[in-house]
Amino acid sequence: MSSGTIRSRAARGPALLLLALGLLLPLAACGPAGNTAAAPASRAPDTVEPLAVAPVPQLPATTASADGRQVTVTSAERIIPLNGSLAELVFSLGLGPKAVARDVSTTFRQAADLPVITQAHEVSAEGVLSLHPTVVLADRSTGPAEAISQIRAAGVPLIVLDDAKRLADVGPRIDTVAAALGVPDAGRQLRERTEQRTDAARAAVPATTGHRPKVAFLYLRGSASVYLLGGPASGAGSLIEAVGGEDAGTAAGLTGDFTPLTSEALVKAAPDAILVMSKGLDSVGGVDGLLKLPGVAQTPAGLDRRIVSIEDGQLLSYGPRTPQVLREISAQLYPAGAR
């Protein structure tokens, strides 16, 4: 699940989010105690790395869509991925030159010049159809449903994937997209590369003495007064566990994906560190502004200003750049000299 997915849910109705306890808090950038957290100087640029040799699609190919349909793709000449995670897969497979549009959560540099076909984080069917796509990729959180139906009614092959919320979802997601676009061999190469890099990133996590650090994932949008604390279905727990941490929301007994941030909920979670998306952190005025939110300053993370900040388009993408995300979380969670 990408940051665009979370924003899309919020845009469709914050009240529904609150009723469903669908709230998420990103972890803020973790730094040595007493210091204001900042983005690490070594942070990689917002780009994707395609396979060395661009594949040639072998089509037609029929794929099982997550909504129960069998979808046949006959051409991959004009691809539209409807969120940043799927766009990352298309470009990583080496098919970026065939992408003809992007959504607002697709932030990496190679896609910057593509037209945006979302409005307020929702898909514009008219915008999609005006670009004459030969295949459209979506996931279950893509909406509104009317737009998806309208695209399909126009005869465009549209494949829905399950949302990715765990490291275990990355490989199957790569396989599905690669098969749908007629490049299964490239998919196997990308999956192998991603798994090797993930294993290396996990192996490089520093060994800790004593307890596992508890990390709270906070989703922040200060301009909309949206402040959410992640639970077991937020999508961040798998990343936190992979770097040797414990998801604070889950440990505190939260259920579902997100819950509104309150002093009581955060103090009960008692995180040692806070994980956030970079734009979310900026939206509340940086670390100083974050410490003014309910309960943050009273937590061990707040007292030590231990904030881990990851780029919005990367944190929850669960794709080929996830190994990079793990390395960045680990570097900020276990800063040199503070282990």
Rank of each mutant, 00 (worst) to 15 (best):
residue 195 E to C: 07
residue 197 R to G: 07
residue 198 T to F: 01
residue 199 D to A: 15
residue 199 D to Q: 15
residue 200 A to K: 07
residue 201 A to C: 10
residue 202 R to K: 15
residue 202 R to A: 02
residue 203 A to L: 12
residue 204 A to Y: 09
residue 204 A to K: 09
residue 206 P to M: 06
residue 206 P to H: 11
residue 206 P to K: 12
residue 208 T to L: 14
residue 208 T to V: 15
residue 208 T to D: 10
residue 209 T to I: 10
residue 210 G to N: 07
residue 212 R to V: 02
residue 212 R to T: 08
residue 212 R to P: 02
residue 213 P to T: 03
residue 213 P to R: 06
residue 218 L to K: 01
residue 218 L to V: 02
residue 218 L to Q: 09
residue 219 Y to S: 13
residue 219 Y to Q: 12
residue 219 Y to L: 12
residue 219 Y to V: 01
residue 220 L to H: 03
residue 220 L to T: 00
residue 221 R to S: 13
residue 222 G to N: 04
residue 223 S to F: 13
residue 223 S to R: 14
residue 224 A to V: 06
residue 224 A to L: 15
residue 224 A to S: 15
residue 225 S to L: 13
residue 227 Y to V: 03
residue 227 Y to S: 09
residue 228 L to V: 08
residue 228 L to K: 08
residue 230 G to L: 05
residue 231 G to H: 06
residue 231 G to I: 00
residue 231 G to Y: 08
residue 231 G to R: 06
residue 232 P to R: 09
residue 232 P to L: 12
residue 236 A to C: 00
residue 236 A to R: 02
residue 237 G to N: 13
residue 238 S to D: 11
residue 240 I to T: 06
residue 240 I to G: 00
residue 240 I to Q: 06
residue 241 E to N: 04
residue 241 E to R: 13
residue 242 A to V: 02
residue 243 V to W: 01
residue 245 G to A: 08
residue 245 G to L: 11
residue 245 G to I: 06
residue 246 E to N: 11
residue 247 D to V: 04
residue 249 G to K: 00
residue 250 T to G: 10
residue 250 T to K: 04
residue 252 A to I: 03
residue 253 G to T: 07
residue 254 L to V: 00
residue 255 T to Y: 07
residue 256 G to F: 06
residue 257 D to E: 15
residue 258 F to K: 04
residue 259 T to H: 11
residue 260 P to H: 12
residue 260 P to V: 13
residue 260 P to K: 12
residue 263 S to D: 12
residue 263 S to M: 04
residue 264 E to L: 03
residue 265 A to S: 13
residue 265 A to L: 10
residue 266 L to P: 00
residue 268 K to D: 09
residue 269 A to C: 08
residue 271 P to S: 10
residue 272 D to S: 03
residue 273 A to F: 05
residue 275 L to D: 07
